[in-house]
């Protein structure tokens, strides 16, 4: 087996292959992964909203050994990543890192938020640094306002950005 600890380095090779096929191929893959992730998160969000997101990403924080803060209020859910193990491993890699590695997170999370009626604002900040800020809003206007403050705004299939 390829150990689960090394999934991100395998993922990195898949991204490089798909980028060579074309941007549409990458987007189809993000959608496929998003669909795969639905079995872990969709029902939680549909039934419990922000609390469901909190439960999901609490498990991710623990199992993936992330350094992150989570929180929510009536208006938004926020994940503040201080040390992303996924990008850290993709960089600590004898194979070359795909330079847009960070794009996959919004790539799978965005379609799930679209499906559940929430509004994602994903600030990767810098694709070379293992920190990011993800905010999920109930109200679309709040999301559009929040986008004004981001440093590197991510898009996802069906939701392009100009950043």
């Amino acid at each position: 087996m390829i150990p689960s600890d090394h999934f991100t380095r395998f993922y990195n090779e898949v991204f490089k292959f798909l980028e060579r096929q074309g941007e549409a191929d990458l987007e189809r893959y993000f959608l496929e992964i998003s669909h795969n992730q639905e079995k872990h998160i969709l029902e939680l969000i549909q039934k419990e909203g922000f609390e469901g997101m909190y439960k999901y990403w609490s498990v991710i924080r623990d199992e993936e050994n992330c350094e992150l803060d989570l929180g929510y209020d009536d208006r938004k859910f926020e994940l503040r990543m201080h040390l992303c193990p996924s990008l850290t491993k993709a960089k600590d890699n004898d194979a070359e890192r795909w330079d847009r590695y960070c794009d996959h997170c919004a790539g799978w999370i965005g379609p799930i938020m679209d499906k559940t009626g929430y509004h994602l604002v994903y600030d990767v900040i810098d694709r070379d640094q293992p920190q990011c800020v993800m905010r999920i809003f109930k109200d679309e206007e709040d999301a559009r306002e929040a986008e004004k403050d981001v440093r590197l705004l991510m898009g996802w299939p069906g939701h392009k950005t100009t950043t």
Binding site: D5, F7, F10, R28, E32, N36, I60
Partner: peptide
């Protein structure tokens, strides 16, 4: 590559999805 700490076995599910894709 000498990881320690917790393990996230669900990554194997993403490998499975990726292979079929």
């Amino acid at each position: 590559y000498n990881e320690d700490g917790n393990v996230h076995l669900d990554f194997h599910g993403a490998v499975n999805t990726t292979i079929d894709f």
